[in-house]
Design a protein around this nucleic acid. Structure first.
Lengths: 177, 177
DNA sequence: GTGCTGTATCTTGATGTCGAGATAAGTGGC
DNA sequence: GCCACTTATCTCGACATCAAGATACAGCAC
């Protein structure tokens, strides 16, 4: 069956009672599993080049947005500052990025793609694009559109979101919830 | 501005050209970020009880499906056998589950919830249900339905899927119970 | 029974991430 | 200039995951 079996019983129960109590968790489960499945895919192609998924995310962000401070990068791909340092260390060690001092903020280090890094991520990204195209080929155009819209809602204001940690003093100021 | 900014340029380009080349990667990014956001939520409530997300998954599966062999459990929640051993070790150490020998297969160890474990997961699950309900409250009933359907497609035959590793010799042969 | 192949679990080593704390530098008030 | 507060990055310890190999048992053929 196509259903996530862990929930079969609940699903049946929910259907019968037309309750939506279990809907949220159910969606979460589906979201998680779908991601795991695709993640395994993505990881395979990326690890063959000696990168992890995070590294790929970093390179990709640099490719499409240009040089960025380490911290900004971390917020984009939703990982903590500690992990960012490690990630940039890895990439710098492989000669794919370099850290340069910011001209306007002496605390900040700006990550730049090297030529080698640009080459790699461009190839990898093209390949990844094809892979993902295949991965989502089970959906037609309309469905993809729908899914994108729904995920955007669920993901919330992703772009402005703080990473997993370092959110103790998120600039929420005061007016919230 | 709700868009995942890393892709803004591609998105614009894709819209203009009505190409679907970038659609797949875009969806993958959205999927990943939405999951990360929700995962951070889920993790918080679970870690407060001294569990990680995997442990929660194990307990939940046991709660809703009854005692299961370690291996079966691993396939349900999509983690490797090595991680499963570690997970069960953790849970057993906390007195939440116990391993018992299988009456039909002397290789297998069956994980059972203890009373303490049952109590904990029931409370935790109820709480988690509420959290997830809130997390997905931005969607109405129809949208949830749509999302569930789409995710099921993307996740593929999740239920029958092998975990990330240990997939080298998946016995696809023929006789699948 | 013997041998062969596949399965279930555990062991070990490498790696990536988080979280908290440390250091350095920007910001604004006095 | 001096002060407190915030921000950017890094350091370090704890921990979860994976991958590959080891061990024990199952199931079948001969």
């Amino acid at each position: 069956m196509a259903t996530a079996s862990a929930w079969k019983d609940d699903q049946v129960a929910a259907t019968k009672a037309t309750r939506n109590t279990a809907k949220g968790v159910h969606l979460w489960l589906l979201l998680w599993k779908a991601t795991r499945v695709q993640e395994a895919h993505a990881r395979r192609s990326v690890e063959a080049m000696g990168l992890c998924l995070t590294d790929f995310g970093v390179l990709e962000a640099l490719l499409h947005k240009g040089p960025l401070p380490v911290n900004t990068l971390g917020k984009k791909i939703l990982i903590s500052s500690g992990s960012m340092t490690a990630a940039i260390d890895r990439l710098e060690g492989q000669g794919l990025v370099v850290r340069k001092d910011s001209p306007v903020d002496r605390r900040a280090r700006i990550a730049h793609l090297t030529t080698k890094g640009t080459d790699l991520i461009q190839r990898l990204f093209a390949e990844h694009t094809r892979d993902m195209e295949r991965a989502f080929s089970c959906l037609d155009g309309t469905e993809k559109e729908q899914l994108a819209t729904l995920l955007r809602k669920v993901g919330g204001e992703v772009d402005g979101m703080a990473p997993l940690s370092d959110r103790a003093h998120s600039s929420k100021k005061r007016g919230e919830s």
